[in-house]
Design a protein around this nucleic acid. Structure first.
Length: 764
DNA sequence: CTCCTCCCTTTTTTT
DNA sequence: AAGGGAGGAG
């Protein structure tokens, strides 16, 4: 008999859920309930008697996994749902590696290096080899290495591949392969895996050890993958291996929402599905339940501009709803205030909660101005992403101690804590130790451990200090296995001297840092409790906690139950999979969104457009777009052009105030080049003539009007609020910093920054 | 060895 | 705007 909860689904969703055996792909438009299908599928399987530990569900964030789990619990109960393997690719496979990695030469207390650790290793390599640190910046190298690993290319393959070598040589960076090899060696030596290694090594494990693969094939009878369009090659291959035996695999995805190509996501994975599983079934979910007709249609009108996409028609039976609003502001601070104001009023008018609102943006840096505005208007908010809790210095330091206790070979952890709090072991000493480690090809810890057996020139004072540090850490290493995580963490925190150092710092920052340390310890405690629930009361060790914490992001932080009613601020990437009644998208400007890094190729531009599509389709009831004419970047004010994406939305869905169009076109006259491009855009033209009469051509400006910057030229007569009338004698500078020297009648020559001067044209 | 100041780069998105 | 690195004083 079908469980009653299946009545919550529409016909297609239901069929997709009931098709529980064999390969299934669900292609689903935004808001059409794809996560719902996954959730109900798991619930359905459980209700049919499938054992929870036979199901693996991979999601994009830990938060998504947790929400799905809660939902399943509410459908079929706690007992049945608890031991479903649910989580991100990284967290699920890190867990498997913890059990199996000895096969591939890692101890099971391996460390997971985060991006900062990886960069720090790369920086050290470039420095030691005295390579050009401009050409070989850590960020660039990590990108290269990461792409290689995602495509399962190890250093030897990298060095032997003629195409890659040619590309690196042409880019004048022939040494990348060599650095990759050294980086690989050092990670191994430190018993450390970076994010990409988790996938690479999982694939390696399954590739080279068929008996292990078989074990997990027999373990996971049913495999479900969310956001399939964003999987990379390594993830694709792992899934294919695991599913090969039973072929009970269900993937859901939407090619129009693929926004992680920069992280190796490959749309090919969707196309390959049909080839890999000839017996597959495909279901298309095209009815949107989330958004108003206006929003759905506007999103469709944007995405048709992409050439590469699979055919899919998203439609809705929902109300037409309000038109999309467009805000124009003169700078980022004003934009933020407009948005904050609008939230304030909408919340009153429609009797909504703060949590019904979200502000989305392209880059994390944009959150600052928005936060200020929210504070000014006393609107509670939460920023997701940005500087995550686990990236703060004091938190990383504390975790550094934990890491070194759990894995003595972890060099990055060693560097981090050897002299913090300061214990008289300075850079010279650390460099010497580091050099010895490279010479002996050993972790630094081994050098420290055997300092009296190897020749060195440390004086007795330094030896004693190093010895003290060694003893401090060693004592904890010896009891790690037998001590529950929280108890050990508390001891380490106290003995390290960190608690004391920060407790004594009574500055506000110091107090907050101390609180952060307490939060870390609370985190250990909470983890220990969860671990006990999931493992029949077993006590978590610190090593378990560390594996988990390395893969947490602050998207995953649990919301404070008592303080949930906040406006959400996040990047569009982070907003994927979420929905809000009211959505604001800020910073719709050329070179910001689409980002200047992504306007050089069609593929990149199309990804930006998909990102815009994702942003639009987060909105349920009301969408507001916003752009500013000026914005701070790297501490400097810059002029901005409205984003081309605004023009791509069919004008009939957008509410453009009349005065606004005139002003906006006038602003564009500033840059003659851009104007040419704009008028060449049929969409733009049509939109403007649809919504407003053509703007007045203002060659014959009227005296008394505020002058446009382009009008200011040598010889022009102007009027200033304080200095009165005068003649422009010189114009210099560029963009926002254009200055004019004006000879005022009676005040002499003054230099004015035009964007502040508010000059009027004068006929006197 | 430690602490301070100045100068430099950095930001596109994330597990 | 802010954090990290280099360089100098104590």
């Amino acid at each position: 008999m079908e469980p009653a909860f299946l009545n919550h689904l529409n016909e297609v969703q239901k069929v997709a859920v009931l098709q529980s055996e064999g390969p299934v792909m669900v292609l689903a438009g935004a808001g059409s309930g794809k996560t719902r299908v996954l959730t109900y599928r798991v619930a359905f399987l459980l209700s049919q008697g499938v054992e929870p530990y036979n199901i693996m569900a991979l999601t994009f964030t830990n938060k998504a996994a947790r929400e799905m789990k809660d939902r399943i619990i509410s459908l079929v109960g706690d007992q049945k749902s608890r031991s479903v393997w649910m989580g991100t690719f990284h967290s699920v496979f890190a867990k498997i590696l913890r059990f199996e990695c000895e096969k591939i030469g890692y101890p099971n207390n391996f460390t997971i290096y985060d991006t900062d650790d990886s960069k720090s290793v790369l920086k050290a390599i470039v420095k030691e080899y005295q390579f050009d640190d401009k050409a070989y910046s850590p960020g660039f190298l990590l990108n290269r290495i990461s792409s290689a690993k995602m495509n399962l290319i190890d250093p030897d393959m990298y060095l032997q591949d003629p195409e890659i070598q040619y590309a690196d040589k042409s880019a004048n960076k022939p040494l990348v392969g060599q650095i990759y090899k050294e980086y690989w060696k050092r990670c191994r030596r430190s018993d450390a895996m970076d994010f990409d290694d988790i996938l690479y090594n999982t694939d390696l494990l399954f590739r080279d050890f068929p008996e292990i693969l078989l074990k997990y094939q027999n373990r996971f009878h049913y495999i479900l993958v969310d956001e399939y369009q964003d999987t990379n090659y390594a993830q694709y291959l792992i899934i294919r291996r695991l599913a090969a035996l039973r072929q009970n695999i269900c993937v859901v995805g939407d090619d129009a929402q693929s926004i992680y190509a920069f992280r190796g996501a490959n749309i090919q994975n969707i196309l390959n599905f049909s080839k890999d599983y000839p017996d597959h079934k495909i279901f298309k979910l095209e009815q949107n339940y989330r958004s108003t007709k206006n929003i759905v249609d506007a999103a469709n009108s944007v995405i048709v501009n992409n050439k590469s996409r699979l055919h899919k028609e998203v439609w809705t039976e929902n109300d037409v709803g309000e038109q999309i609003s467009l805000f124009k502001s003169s700078n980022d601070a004003e934009e933020a205030l407009m948005i904050a104001n609008s939230i304030f009023h909408s919340r009153m008018t429609y009797q909504m909660n703060n949590s019904d609102f979200a502000i989305l943006y392209r880059t994390n840096a944009q959150s600052r101005a928005l936060e200020e505005a929210m504070r000014k208007l006393n609107i509670p908010y939460r920023v997701y992403g940005g500087i995550s809790f686990y990236k703060r210095k004091e938190v990383k330091d504390m975790l550094g101690y934990f890491r070194l206790v759990v894995n003595p070979a972890d060099n990055e952890a060693f560097f981090r804590v050897i002299n913090y709090p300061t214990r008289g072991i300075g850079n010279t000493t650390i460099n010497k130790l580091s050099l010895l480690a490279t010479q002996y090809e050993k972790p630094i810890w081994d050098i420290v451990e055997n300092l009296d057996k190897i020749p060195n020139d440390f004086n007795s004072g330094i030896r004693r200090r190093i010895g003290d540090f060694y003893t401090l850490i060693k004592n904890f290493q010896l009891i790690e296995e037998k001590t529950p995580a929280y108890e050990l963490a508390k001891k380490i925190a106290a003995a390290s001297g960190m608690m004391k150092a920060l407790f004594e710092d009574k500055t506000p920052e110091g107090v907050s840092r101390y609180e952060n340390l307490e939060a870390v310890l609370n985190g250990v405690k909470m983890y220990e409790d969860d671990f006990a629930t999931e493992n029949e009361g077993a006590a978590a060790r610190l090593v378990d906690f560390m594996l988990n914490v390395a893969l947490l992001t602050d998207m995953d932080e649990k919301d404070d139950e008592n303080d949930k009613d906040r406006v959400s601020l996040m990047t569009i990437h982070a907003a994927k999979g979420l929905e809000f009644p009211f959505v604001y998208i800020g910073g719709l400007e050329e070179n910001l969104f689409p980002n200047s890094m992504s306007v050089n190729s069609r593929a990149e531009l199309e990804e930006e457009r998909r990102l815009f599509y994702v942003a639009i389709t987060r909105a349920m009831k009301k969408l507001t777009l916003s752009f500013a004419e000026m914005r701070y970047k790297w501490g400097e004010m810059n002029f901005c052009e409205p984003s081309r994406f605004i023009d791509e939305i069919d004008g009939k869905f957008v509410d453009i105030p009349r005065k606004f169009v005139q002003k906006s076109v006038a602003a564009n006259t500033f840059n003659p080049l851009d104007k040419k491009e704009k008028t060449g855009n049929v969409f733009a033209k049509k939109q403007i003539s649809n919504s407003a009469p053509p703007p007045t051509k203002d060659k014959n400006f009227l005296p008394g009007e505020l002058a446009k910057i382009s009008d200011i030229a040598e010889g022009v007569r102007v009027e200033h609020a304080r200095f009165g009338h005068g003649t422009v004698v010189k114009v210099e500078g560029e963009g926002p910093n254009i200055k004019a020297s004006v000879e005022f009648d009676g005040f002499g020559v003054k230099q004015l920054v035009l964007r502040f001067a508010r000059l009027k044209l004068s006929d006197k």
